[in-house]
Each structure stands twice: as structure tokens, then as C-alpha cells.
Design a protein around this nucleic acid. Structure first.
Length: 324
DNA sequence: CGTGCGACCTGGGGGC
DNA sequence: TGCCCCCAGGTCGCAC
């Protein structure tokens, strides 16, 4: 399940393997993966073919390659000389760098042929960039870039341009972004009449967090998912932000969380953070913090927001003023 | 406008 | 063996 750490692993892979290369050809095997490209498959192919990738940027779970056309700006907007090739992995999307003669994946959706390139040793780099997606919640599309409202870079990555794809402009800064502000997150949390986990999953408030890391952070911060956000005091917000940031940094170091072959990096390798999960998927198993303090408390699974939440009711007692 | 919920998808697993 | 239902879940559009 790609959340921020998994998408960042992919971004780094793309930055290393794709930056500076030109897209020579595009093969769309399933138009459903281009659902968010409003002008259709041929327009997508026309916008991507011949463009050079200059940077790979990420905000939250959105990832984009900055495209520049060697023949000059193709956008009608003079203020947007470059465009973005956006990708969202959804539940099961993969971006893979492979040799063109590698067997085609069952769920291969889009195939980009890249210009020849070699690494520092002179070893040729694989020429295929493939978008594979079993459940089709993810997708790719081309869009214009617009100025960020705060004048800061649009996201994390090589790009220092204060530009953001329009479709990601409503996405909040993520905890690994230097422009993330815990103070403004706290202010907005206090204004909301909602529950803490719902807020953590709201990409407009703080981005990059999905069901897995939400549960991990809540467990680490010893807070219940139903805690009303307007009761949070500044130290509470700082505690959950610290927990989210720490768990994501650790997951990133481990190469992300892979339960099965659905999440892999650009070279097809799984991450190994799943073994370090303290909450997610651990229903019926002992809470490790309780165990280390001499108690045997079993982790629970509860339904919340039509999905599973995993928690320890000793460490994370349900608040009396719990909110849905 | 803030909030919450259903639709979009496929494959795996359990029940019968 | 096969069929049906449920579950996984990120984002968007829509209803209230």
C-alpha cells in the first residue's frame, strides 16, 4: 500500500534512473489508467513524446516528472513553460525501470520508451519505464504547473521551482517537506470538528499518511483514533507530528512497507518495514510496549471509517468525547 | 464551506 | 469444483 515512504522510494529511483532522459515513445495499454488525463490518450501521447524529464518531485502521495520540450514550450500558458507528468500509485500502482525485452507484466498499463543513457561506469541504463497497476486506483496524466501559494518549491525533490501541478495544489505539505509547518497544521486541526485519525488521513490537512502509518503514528503517540481534533493542545499536535515523522523516516530507511508484491521500488524490490510495524495488522498479538512494561495487552482491530484500525486500548484509551 | 459517504477497481480468501 | 460475498484502500464527486 504505497503511502509517503513508498512513494518517496519510487521518486528517488526515478530521479536516479530517468532524470535527463527523453521520452521517445509511449504505449498506452489500458486507457483507464489515464482517466484523469481529460483530453484523451492521443493527447497524452503527444504531450509526453519528445519531452525531456528534468526533475522528479513529490508532495504527499503525488509524484510528478517535470517535462521540458526541447522544441520549446508546448503549453498555451506563457507562465508555464514546462508541464508535469503526474503519477499516483493508488493502491497497487508500480513504476518500474526495465529492459524493453523483459516479459510484459499482466497488469501493464502504460509503457514509456526512454532515450539511451548510461550510468557513471558507462553501463547502459534500461530503456523502459513501465506503469503497472492491478486495481487501477492509480494513474498518470499530464498537466500544467502553476505557482505555489507560498512561493516555496512545490514538493520534495530535485526541483526547486515554486511550481505545483494544479491537481496537487489542494494537497497539504507532507511531514518530510521542509515547508511543512506543524504550527499551521495545529491551527487547522483546532478549527476542525473531526476525529484525529480522520484528520491524519485528510490529504488537505497533512499529506502522505494512509491507513498503515496513521495507525503506527497513533500507537507511537499513544493517542486514540477518535480523539476530537479541537481538543488537541499544541504539545499533543507536536507529539503526533513527531510520531508520524519518525515512523515515516524509519520506513523510508527500510525501503518502505511491502505485504506482497504489490509495492516494489523501481527495480522491483520489496521494502522490509512490514516486520517493524507495531500496530497495523497485529490484532490479537501483544502490544510490544505493554509487554516491555510487564503487561500482556492484546492489540485490537476495530472498524472505523469503513476500514480497519489497529490499536492498544491500554496505551490508547478511548476518549469519553470520542468523535466519528 | 465543512463533513462524510459511496463509487471506482481487481484478486484473494472464506463460506457453502 | 465453483460461486458468491467480503475485504483491501486513495481519491474524487456529490449529498447534506
Amino acid at each position: 500500500m504505497p503511502e509517503l515512504p513508498e512513494v518517496e522510494v519510487v521518486r528517488r529511483g526515478l530521479a536516479r534512473w530517468v532524470t535527463g532522459r527523453t521520452v521517445e515513445d509511449v504505449d498506452v495499454l489500458d486507457a483507464r489508467s489515464l482517466r484523469r488525463h481529460v483530453h484523451g490518450v492521443e493527447d497524452f501521447r503527444g504531450n509526453v513524446t519528445g519531452a525531456r524529464v528534468t526533475d522528479v518531485v513529490r508532495r504527499g502521495k503525488f509524484l510528478w516528472m517535470i517535462l521540458e520540450d526541447p522544441d520549446g514550450p508546448r503549453s498555451a500558458l506563457a507562465a508555464a513553460p514546462s508541464t508535469a507528468l503526474m503519477a499516483h500509485l493508488g493502491m497497487s500502482g508500480q513504476l518500474l525501470i526495465e529492459e524493453p525485452d523483459a516479459p510484459l507484466e499482466k497488469h501493464l498499463k502504460v509503457r514509456l520508451r526512454l532515450s539511451a543513457a548510461s550510468d557513471a561506469d558507462g553501463t547502459p541504463l534500461p530503456a523502459d519505464l513501465r506503469f503497472v497497476d492491478q486495481r487501477i486506483f492509480g494513474g498518470m496524466f499530464v498537466t500544467d504547473l502553476e505557482p505555489t501559494t507560498d512561493g516555496r518549491p512545490g514538493g520534495l525533490g530535485g526541483g526547486s521551482l515554486p511550481l505545483i501541478p494544479r491537481q496537487a495544489a489542494h494537497i497539504a505539505r507532507d511531514p518530510l517537506d521542509p515547508a511543512f509547518s506543524a504550527e499551521s497544521f495545529h491551527r487547522r486541526l483546532r478549527e476542525r470538528k473531526t476525529s484525529l485519525k480522520r484528520a491524519l488521513l485528510d490529504q488537505g490537512l497533512i499529506s502522505g499518511i494512509g491507513n498503515i502509518y496513521a495507525d503506527e503514528a497513533l500507537w507511537a503517540a499513544r493517542m486514540h483514533y477518535a480523539r476530537p481534533t479541537d481538543t488537541l493542545r499544541r504539545p499533543d499536535t507536536l507529539r503526533i507530528v513527531e510520531a508520524v515523522t519518525t515512523v515515516m523516516r524509519r520506513a523510508l530507511e527500510a525501503g518502505g512497507t511491502s505485504f506482497d508484491s504489490l509495492y516494489v521500488n523501481v527495480n522491483g524490490a520489496s521494502g522490509y518495514f512490514a516486520r517493524d510495524l507495531e500496530a497495523y495488522g497485529r490484532a490479537g498479538q501483544p502490544c510490544r510496549r505493554c509487554l516491555s512494561e510487564g503487561r500482556t495487552t492484546l492489540m485490537r482491530r476495530e472498524a472505523f471509517m469503513n476500514r480497519s484500525s489497529f490499536l492498544c486500548l491500554f496505551c490508547q484509551p478511548r476518549p469519553r468525547n470520542a468523535r466519528a
